[in-house]
Amino acid sequence: MYFCFVDEFGDFSASFDDKGKEQSSHESWRPVCGYGGIIIPAGHYLKFCEHFSRLRMIGVKNIAFAKHIATEGSISFEEFNRIFSEDRFRLYSKADEVGGTDFFSGSYLNSSRRSSRRRRSVLRRASIFLSLIEQFDGEIFFAGVDKAGYFARPRNRKRPRSLHVNLVPNVLQIAHQEASARRSQIKLIFDHHHEDDDNTNRVRARSTGQQIHAIAALQTRQEYSQEVIVRNRFYDYLKEPMFFVHSHWSLGIQAADWVCSLLGKVKSFEKDPMRFSSYTKIGEKLGPRIEALKSRHSMIAHSNAVITRLPRQLQLDLGGAPEINGQPLPTQGNLEAPLNDQR
């Protein structure tokens, strides 16, 4: 049995017009998006969490230190450590979550204002984290899309489901391939998202007796995943995914968040090095590490792929109605070019 903890990376906003051309984008826009995280043997998960908790505490202390000097003025890190160890002075609970965006931002990693030192700290801590995954036989998992290619398909621009829901089949497809290769079941555990919850439209439709689980525009990620698993007969290797796990409840989800923070930066740089030149160091240093640690079927579906016919069980659903999914889709080998050729 393997656990696969999944969060989202990149940017799920569209920013494309009705012809698939990119429109003006906001500051946090990314050219790729998808789901990512870690796959780890169930028997190694507890030990991984013990070591991950220690690494996470580095972030807790540094964030607390940054907050303290921002409000209380200058103080040495050694003196702060003494204060931090006393419960009555603690500014940041050890139980609180440390997100990957914070941990790998470099803004709080030390008190120096020299950006080069902060970058080195980010790279060092990211390298330690990736080594921790490797130490416990974990792998980096991701199932994403090149947004320009994805929205170039008219059926994806006019999709009835939200992008968060529509990309779930990608995750299930790749997870099933991973499980089949290992001949072992995989338990998928997703970070909670607000689209997993009931909303006004679902409540209204339910009150009129409609079968909301079968209405594409109203489906949650869980409902759509159940449909895809049954339709593609993935139930031989995939345990029913969990979608209601909040990140502060699970160290595995927090680790997936850290992975996704790195994936968003690295894959954006690989896609467009000029536009994302601020990620040059992290892309050049960590890109090969991520490539070496990725699970064998993890992939970003690119728009420059050659179309080939695949058996039903190997098709990658890029969204749309089930009857469209029988069309031939790109193979993994064509979808993801080598790192040196990408972006």
Results as ranks from 00 to 15, higher is better:
M1Q: 07
F5S: 06
F9P: 00
D11N: 14
F12W: 02
A14Q: 10
F16S: 04
F16C: 06
G20T: 07
E22L: 14
Y35E: 01
I40A: 10
P41A: 10
A42G: 03
L46M: 05
F52Q: 12
R54T: 10
L55G: 15
R56T: 03
I63T: 06
A64S: 12
A66I: 02
I69F: 07
A70C: 09
G73E: 05
S76I: 10
F77P: 07
F80I: 06
F84H: 12
S93A: 11
S93C: 11
K94Y: 11
D96H: 05
G100A: 11
F103I: 02
S105L: 11
Y108C: 14
S112N: 14
R118S: 11
R118A: 12
S121T: 07
R125H: 09
L132H: 08
E139K: 00
F141I: 04
A148H: 10
Y150C: 12
A152E: 12
R153T: 03
N156P: 14
R159F: 12
V165Y: 05
N166R: 06
V168H: 05
L172P: 09
Q177S: 04
E178V: 00
K187N: 12
H194R: 14
R202Q: 15
S207C: 07
S207G: 09
Q210D: 15
H213W: 04
A214E: 15
A214R: 13
I215N: 08
A216H: 10
L218S: 13
L218I: 10
T220E: 13
R221Q: 11
Y224F: 13
Q226N: 15
V230A: 14
V230W: 12
R233C: 06
D236W: 07
D236E: 15
L238R: 07
K239W: 01
K239V: 05
M242L: 12
H246V: 11
H248W: 08
H248V: 02
Q254N: 04
L263H: 03
V266Q: 01
S268Q: 08
M274Q: 13
F276C: 04
F276M: 03
T280S: 14
K281M: 14
K281I: 09
G283V: 06
G283H: 05
G283S: 05
P288I: 14
R289G: 01
E291P: 00
A292W: 01
A305L: 02
Q313C: 08
L314W: 04
I324V: 08
N325Y: 00
N325A: 04
G326F: 02
Q327E: 06
L329R: 04
N334C: 02
N334S: 04
N334V: 00
N334W: 00
